[in-house]
Design a protein around this nucleic acid. Structure first.
Lengths: 344, 344
DNA sequence: TATGAAACACAAAACGTTTTTCTGGTTCAT
DNA sequence: ATGAACCAGAAAAACGTTTTGTGTTTCATA
């Protein structure tokens, strides 16, 4: 109650200088004499003055706000990434304004409009796709946009993903090498590039070894969907290996196989996931999976968006972070190769 | 590249009215003739005009930004709550600006200052405590603050938690009723009110039944800490029941007991958690736990902070949401009582 | 028809900064 | 001694809104 908002004018009065002098003292690039700086600093700290970011944003055009568009956080990969993303941006003086988007692309337009209303300096779209018309509009008002964990078809946007295609292939190679022949796949949400690329790499990998996909289910990246898909796949002619499009679904599938269908993993069936979220390494699951290097993905995303904001425009590209296969105990071992379950 | 920022002035020109008329058309409470409204709407949509939230914030003092202070997101209760929180606020025209705070209270002061620089209209502090001096300062500049899942000692702040004390008691009652006698506790981070209250309720509950706590470990709310605490507890004179201060640690404990120590749950030892995150109901864990009703906690939090912002000041209080015990398969059953494992 | 109230549009002030322009003083070389 | 060149500070413009007078028009009522 005591102190209302302190403005630079009040600081100026107390320091006996002009208001613009105060501004310059608080603006990194500006010049002021040592004497003035000291007087202003003293007055400011006595009054508890801090510059108003919004007022600064108005005139400078730099809000230091980045919009984060995200559809869901139940797959643990996202909170993890969000935490890293927020910290990394915070270190560089930016902050995330969060916008939840329904998975249905319907209202994404509105949400993006709202972001622009806040004068965000950039947009990070995580686990979300977007019409190119919409992306175009952001670009046209000078707001760069980076897709995180989703690539767009057109090569005119920035996107950061793991190398999903190569990851899918590695899984195929491994399962084939382990001697599996009836290999099935449980897909994620059909409109997600992660789903598409992982499957394409996986199927191509199988084909390379003259093997066809034994069966295919769809889990839509949800636990329930994945469980149901697993039930259907094992209803008749069950596979002996299963690649599930992400860890989140893989856990649900493993539970269904073990506790509902009474199967043993990997003796009856091998299971592979994708993401390597922390749970994957828990003994209960000990899941063989493809690791998405969240740290690298995040730092690349941050680098790109800040470069864009600050004008160091590079060519749009689809950055693919290499994604290693982490072999754990949910898959049958290859004779000549130890599972490296020591990996955390 | 085509369109630069469209301002209300340009809309005014095109519509042949004054700039303030445009403003009134876009301000809910204001009055304008039907004719004016129509002209302005038409011109605005032709130009693609949308009001600049930051400019509005400057003069009106309403940024429609709420600061979220959060320390970590690895316990799945938080991403879940965050998602709900963000959606609920979004519906009411507010958005969350995210600030990560190290768990150490050291830099919290700076982070709060940064929040205030952005002219946030309110602060939600999740999983974070704060010196009362700091909270006082926010209050003094008119920024309400609500603690989510942490209560403060002083009763002059708003806080929303589950009824942790009562929850702890329910666990004690249940374990005693199931015939356990050697009952141990694995604590969370010692400075968290959730940790303190849960333990207090638990211990009081045991004492009510003339039972003393058999042993106590400390896991600090981390997986590794909890695993280590479990090892120590079972090193000699092992307990026959274990209450772990949250689910996140309980999973780690269960894995350690089963896969490292070769124990069977609940035959050798019963395990109870707290939170009822989605994983708790997975068959692998099937964890008996105390449910924190995230939906209720979130909507209460939102109600409080918006009421504060809009001036309907109620008395500060510590809102405690009732937290039911969800009995699943990780605990020995009570003879006269069926475990309601059907609960999702 | 005259009059008062109500409705509405406009111009101007305000919000708290950064940035640009302007002014006066100092330094320095010529 | 004089002008140029610089520098720091003051003043003022700008950012895009909302809000606050103020004046005009409309309309109903007397």
């Amino acid at each position: 109650m005591s102190s209302e908002k302190i403005t630079s004018i009040e600081v100026a009065h107390r320091a006996g200088v002009s208001q613009s002098a105060v501004s310059r003292v608080f603006t990194p690039g500006a010049s002021a004499s040592k004497q003035t700086v000291e007087k202003v600093r003293k007055a400011a700290s006595e009054l508890g003055y801090r510059p108003n970011v919004l007022a600064r944003a108005m005139v400078s055009g730099k809000s230091r706000i980045i919009g984060l568009l995200v559809a869901y956080l139940d797959n643990q990969f996202y909170p993890d990434a969000l935490e890293k993303l927020s910290s990394a941006l915070q270190e560089r003086g930016y902050h995330l304004l969060v916008f939840m988007a329904g998975k249905d692309a319907g209202n994404i337009d509105n949400v993006v409009d709202e972001m622009l209303d806040y004068q965000v300096e950039g947009i990070i779209a995580a686990s979300v796709s977007m019409s190119s018309k919409l992306a175009e509009r952001c670009q046209s008002v000078g707001v760069p946009i980076v897709f995180f964990n989703r690539s767009q078809n057109d090569e005119t946007r920035f996107a950061v993903t793991s190398d999903n295609y190569a990851g899918g292939r590695k899984v195929a190679d491994y399962l084939v090498a382990a001697g599996h022949t009836k290999i099935a796949y449980i897909a994620g949400w059909q409109f997600a590039s992660t789903q598409y690329d992982r499957e394409a790499g996986f199927v191509d990998g199988l084909n390379k070894h003259q093997i066809n996909l034994h069966a295919r289910g769809v889990g839509n990246f949800t636990s329930e969907g994945a469980a149901e898909a697993a039930r259907l796949l094992f209803d008749k002619d069950p596979p002996d290996a299963l690649f599930v499009a992400n860890d989140h679904m893989a856990f649900s599938v493993m539970d269904t196989l073990r506790y509902e269908l009474g199967l043993s993993i990997p003796d009856d069936v091998s299971v592979v996931g994708y993401d390597d979220v922390p749970i994957a390494s828990w003994p209960s699951f000990n899941l063989t999976t493809v690791r998405q290097r969240a740290n690298q993905m995040v730092s690349k995303t941050v680098d790109i968006i800040i470069a864009q904001i600050e004008g160091d425009a590079a060519k749009p590209q689809n950055v693919k972070i290499e994604a290693p296969l982490i072999v754990r105990g949910s898959t049958r071992a290859i004779a000549s190769c130890q599972p490296n379950s020591s990996v955390k």
